[in-house]
Amino acid sequence: MIETWPCPGGDGQTDEFAVVIDRARPFRLLIVPPLLDEMNRTRRLAVGTMRALDAHGIDSFLPDLPGTNESLQPFVSQSLHGWRTAMAQAARHFAATHVLALRGGALVFPNVLPGWVVEPVMGASLLRQLLRARVIAAREAGRHEDSAALLEIGRTEGIELAGYDFGPALIAGLDSARPLDEGQREIRAGELGGAALWLRAEPGDDPAQAARLAAIIAAGIAA
Protein backbone atom coordinates (compact mmCIF):
# COMPACT_ATOMS: atom_id res chain seq x y z
CA MET A 1 0.00 0.00 0.00
CA ILE A 2 0.99 3.64 -0.42
CA GLU A 3 1.71 5.75 2.67
CA THR A 4 3.05 9.23 3.19
CA TRP A 5 6.04 10.10 5.31
CA PRO A 6 7.25 13.51 6.50
CA CYS A 7 10.35 14.69 4.68
CA PRO A 8 12.47 17.82 4.84
CA GLY A 9 11.74 19.92 1.76
CA GLY A 10 12.45 23.31 0.25
CA ASP A 11 9.79 25.07 2.36
CA GLY A 12 10.18 23.12 5.57
CA GLN A 13 8.41 19.79 5.97
CA THR A 14 6.54 18.11 3.15
CA ASP A 15 4.85 14.76 2.62
CA GLU A 16 6.47 12.18 0.37
CA PHE A 17 5.08 8.82 -0.69
CA ALA A 18 6.31 5.29 -0.10
CA VAL A 19 5.17 1.81 -1.04
CA VAL A 20 4.85 0.05 2.31
CA ILE A 21 4.28 -3.52 3.50
CA ASP A 22 4.12 -3.12 7.27
CA ARG A 23 2.82 -5.81 9.59
CA ALA A 24 4.81 -4.53 12.60
CA ARG A 25 7.32 -7.39 12.36
CA PRO A 26 10.83 -7.19 13.85
CA PHE A 27 12.75 -7.00 10.55
CA ARG A 28 12.06 -3.80 8.63
CA LEU A 29 13.88 -3.18 5.36
CA LEU A 30 14.25 0.27 3.79
CA ILE A 31 14.70 0.03 0.01
CA VAL A 32 16.53 2.98 -1.55
CA PRO A 33 15.67 3.00 -5.26
CA PRO A 34 18.04 3.57 -8.16
CA LEU A 35 18.26 7.10 -9.53
CA LEU A 36 16.49 8.58 -12.55
CA ASP A 37 15.58 6.27 -15.45
CA GLU A 38 16.90 3.24 -13.62
CA MET A 39 14.26 3.78 -10.95
CA ASN A 40 11.50 3.30 -13.51
CA ARG A 41 13.20 0.30 -15.04
CA THR A 42 13.48 -1.48 -11.68
CA ARG A 43 10.15 -0.49 -10.13
CA ARG A 44 8.54 -3.87 -10.66
CA LEU A 45 11.65 -5.68 -9.43
CA ALA A 46 11.55 -3.58 -6.23
CA VAL A 47 7.85 -4.11 -5.59
CA GLY A 48 8.10 -7.82 -6.47
CA THR A 49 10.95 -8.12 -3.97
CA MET A 50 8.76 -6.46 -1.32
CA ARG A 51 5.98 -9.01 -1.87
CA ALA A 52 8.46 -11.88 -1.71
CA LEU A 53 9.97 -10.42 1.48
CA ASP A 54 6.47 -10.26 2.96
CA ALA A 55 6.21 -14.01 2.46
CA HIS A 56 9.54 -14.36 4.29
CA GLY A 57 8.09 -12.40 7.24
CA ILE A 58 10.00 -9.18 6.52
CA ASP A 59 8.41 -5.70 6.37
CA SER A 60 9.68 -3.33 3.71
CA PHE A 61 9.44 0.32 2.69
CA LEU A 62 10.16 1.87 -0.70
CA PRO A 63 10.15 5.67 -0.42
CA ASP A 64 10.22 8.05 -3.36
CA LEU A 65 13.32 10.17 -3.67
CA PRO A 66 12.05 13.77 -3.36
CA GLY A 67 11.40 15.31 -6.76
CA THR A 68 10.90 11.90 -8.44
CA ASN A 69 8.04 9.47 -9.01
CA GLU A 70 4.93 10.73 -7.10
CA SER A 71 6.80 13.46 -5.20
CA LEU A 72 5.38 16.99 -5.39
CA GLN A 73 8.78 18.65 -4.90
CA PRO A 74 10.47 20.14 -7.97
CA PHE A 75 13.25 17.98 -9.40
CA VAL A 76 15.41 21.02 -10.13
CA SER A 77 15.97 21.77 -6.44
CA GLN A 78 17.17 18.25 -5.57
CA SER A 79 20.72 17.30 -4.64
CA LEU A 80 22.46 14.14 -3.48
CA HIS A 81 22.79 15.75 -0.05
CA GLY A 82 19.02 16.36 0.01
CA TRP A 83 18.30 12.78 -1.04
CA ARG A 84 20.67 11.45 1.66
CA THR A 85 18.88 13.53 4.29
CA ALA A 86 15.51 12.32 3.00
CA MET A 87 16.48 8.64 3.02
CA ALA A 88 17.91 8.95 6.54
CA GLN A 89 14.62 10.55 7.59
CA ALA A 90 12.64 7.73 5.91
CA ALA A 91 14.75 5.15 7.76
CA ARG A 92 13.88 6.84 11.08
CA HIS A 93 10.20 7.30 10.21
CA PHE A 94 9.70 3.67 9.26
CA ALA A 95 12.03 2.43 12.04
CA ALA A 96 14.08 0.47 9.49
CA THR A 97 16.38 -2.21 10.89
CA HIS A 98 18.07 -2.99 7.56
CA VAL A 99 18.62 -1.31 4.20
CA LEU A 100 18.75 -2.39 0.56
CA ALA A 101 20.21 0.12 -1.92
CA LEU A 102 19.81 -0.50 -5.63
CA ARG A 103 22.43 0.90 -8.08
CA GLY A 104 22.58 4.71 -7.66
CA GLY A 105 20.63 4.34 -4.44
CA ALA A 106 24.03 3.40 -2.99
CA LEU A 107 25.05 7.07 -3.44
CA VAL A 108 22.36 8.30 -1.01
CA PHE A 109 21.41 5.44 1.32
CA PRO A 110 21.72 5.51 5.15
CA ASN A 111 24.86 3.43 5.48
CA VAL A 112 24.62 3.20 9.27
CA LEU A 113 22.13 0.36 8.76
CA PRO A 114 23.23 -3.19 8.00
CA GLY A 115 22.11 -4.54 4.65
CA TRP A 116 22.78 -4.97 0.95
CA VAL A 117 23.70 -2.95 -2.11
CA VAL A 118 22.88 -4.25 -5.59
CA GLU A 119 25.45 -3.34 -8.28
CA PRO A 120 26.40 0.06 -6.81
CA VAL A 121 27.34 2.58 -9.48
CA MET A 122 29.49 5.72 -9.53
CA GLY A 123 27.61 8.98 -9.95
CA ALA A 124 29.89 9.90 -12.84
CA SER A 125 28.81 6.78 -14.77
CA LEU A 126 25.15 7.73 -14.49
CA LEU A 127 25.93 11.30 -15.46
CA ARG A 128 28.00 10.24 -18.47
CA GLN A 129 25.09 8.19 -19.84
CA LEU A 130 22.72 11.13 -19.48
CA LEU A 131 25.15 13.50 -21.19
CA ARG A 132 25.68 11.02 -24.00
CA ALA A 133 21.96 10.53 -24.50
CA ARG A 134 21.69 14.29 -25.02
CA VAL A 135 24.68 14.38 -27.38
CA ILE A 136 23.16 11.52 -29.41
CA ALA A 137 19.71 13.17 -29.52
CA ALA A 138 21.28 16.46 -30.63
CA ARG A 139 23.23 14.72 -33.37
CA GLU A 140 20.04 13.06 -34.64
CA ALA A 141 18.51 16.54 -34.78
CA GLY A 142 21.50 17.81 -36.76
CA ARG A 143 23.10 19.79 -33.93
CA HIS A 144 26.55 19.31 -32.46
CA GLU A 145 26.91 19.09 -28.70
CA ASP A 146 29.79 17.88 -26.62
CA SER A 147 29.67 16.00 -23.29
CA ALA A 148 32.48 17.98 -21.67
CA ALA A 149 30.94 21.34 -22.58
CA LEU A 150 27.48 20.21 -21.45
CA LEU A 151 28.92 19.05 -18.12
CA GLU A 152 30.46 22.46 -17.57
CA ILE A 153 27.14 24.19 -18.32
CA GLY A 154 25.39 21.75 -16.00
CA ARG A 155 27.79 22.44 -13.15
CA THR A 156 27.34 26.20 -13.37
CA GLU A 157 23.76 26.76 -14.59
CA GLY A 158 22.05 23.40 -14.45
CA ILE A 159 20.91 21.51 -17.56
CA GLU A 160 18.08 19.42 -18.96
CA LEU A 161 19.08 15.81 -19.50
CA ALA A 162 16.73 12.97 -20.52
CA GLY A 163 13.73 15.09 -19.56
CA TYR A 164 15.05 15.89 -16.07
CA ASP A 165 15.64 19.51 -15.13
CA PHE A 166 18.95 19.19 -13.25
CA GLY A 167 20.07 21.96 -10.91
CA PRO A 168 23.82 22.60 -10.64
CA ALA A 169 24.03 20.98 -7.19
CA LEU A 170 22.82 17.61 -8.44
CA ILE A 171 25.15 17.69 -11.46
CA ALA A 172 28.16 18.55 -9.30
CA GLY A 173 27.15 15.91 -6.76
CA LEU A 174 26.76 13.15 -9.32
CA ASP A 175 30.04 14.04 -11.02
CA SER A 176 32.02 13.16 -7.90
CA ALA A 177 29.78 10.77 -5.92
CA ARG A 178 30.94 7.27 -5.03
CA PRO A 179 28.87 4.47 -3.48
CA LEU A 180 28.67 4.86 0.29
CA ASP A 181 28.51 1.18 1.21
CA GLU A 182 30.38 0.39 4.37
CA GLY A 183 30.13 -3.24 5.37
CA GLN A 184 26.86 -3.90 3.54
CA ARG A 185 26.96 -7.00 1.38
CA GLU A 186 27.31 -6.31 -2.32
CA ILE A 187 25.02 -8.28 -4.64
CA ARG A 188 26.06 -8.54 -8.30
CA ALA A 189 23.53 -8.81 -11.14
CA GLY A 190 24.68 -12.35 -11.93
CA GLU A 191 23.58 -13.57 -8.49
CA LEU A 192 19.97 -12.70 -9.34
CA GLY A 193 20.03 -15.12 -12.23
CA GLY A 194 18.80 -12.93 -15.07
CA ALA A 195 19.50 -9.90 -17.25
CA ALA A 196 20.08 -6.66 -15.34
CA LEU A 197 16.69 -4.96 -15.42
CA TRP A 198 18.16 -1.47 -14.89
CA LEU A 199 19.72 -1.71 -18.35
CA ARG A 200 16.47 -2.57 -20.08
CA ALA A 201 15.26 0.05 -22.57
CA GLU A 202 11.63 -0.76 -21.77
CA PRO A 203 10.82 -1.37 -18.09
CA GLY A 204 10.71 -5.13 -17.66
CA ASP A 205 9.73 -7.61 -15.01
CA ASP A 206 11.31 -10.81 -13.74
CA PRO A 207 9.55 -12.39 -10.76
CA ALA A 208 12.32 -15.00 -10.45
CA GLN A 209 14.92 -12.25 -9.85
CA ALA A 210 12.69 -10.60 -7.23
CA ALA A 211 12.30 -13.96 -5.48
CA ARG A 212 16.06 -14.55 -5.61
CA LEU A 213 16.84 -11.10 -4.19
CA ALA A 214 14.30 -11.56 -1.39
CA ALA A 215 15.77 -15.00 -0.59
CA ILE A 216 19.30 -13.54 -0.31
CA ILE A 217 18.01 -10.85 2.07
CA ALA A 218 15.91 -13.26 4.13
CA ALA A 219 18.86 -15.64 4.51
CA GLY A 220 21.13 -12.75 5.52
CA ILE A 221 18.69 -11.37 8.08
CA ALA A 222 18.13 -14.79 9.64
CA ALA A 223 21.88 -15.47 9.87
Binding site: A133, D146, S147, A201
Partner: peptide, 24 residues
Protein backbone atom coordinates in the same frame (compact mmCIF):
# COMPACT_ATOMS: atom_id res chain seq x y z
CA UNK B 1 13.04 0.73 -28.01
CA UNK B 2 16.26 2.33 -29.21
CA UNK B 3 15.75 5.99 -28.24
CA UNK B 4 18.70 8.21 -27.30
CA UNK B 5 18.66 7.14 -23.65
CA UNK B 6 18.57 3.48 -24.64
CA UNK B 7 21.45 4.04 -27.06
CA UNK B 8 23.50 5.67 -24.29
CA UNK B 9 22.66 2.77 -21.98
CA UNK B 10 23.60 0.27 -24.67
CA UNK B 11 27.02 1.85 -25.23
CA UNK B 12 27.64 2.00 -21.47
CA UNK B 13 26.71 -1.68 -21.13
CA UNK B 14 29.05 -2.56 -24.02
CA UNK B 15 31.84 -0.58 -22.33
CA UNK B 16 31.25 -2.41 -19.05
CA UNK B 17 31.06 -5.82 -20.68
CA UNK B 18 34.26 -5.50 -22.71
CA UNK B 19 36.15 -3.00 -20.53
CA UNK B 20 36.22 -0.40 -23.31
CA UNK B 21 35.72 3.36 -23.44
CA UNK B 22 34.09 5.05 -26.43
CA UNK B 23 34.49 8.68 -27.47
CA UNK B 24 31.33 10.69 -28.13
Amino acid sequence: ELDSMAIATLFAAIEDHFGLMFDD
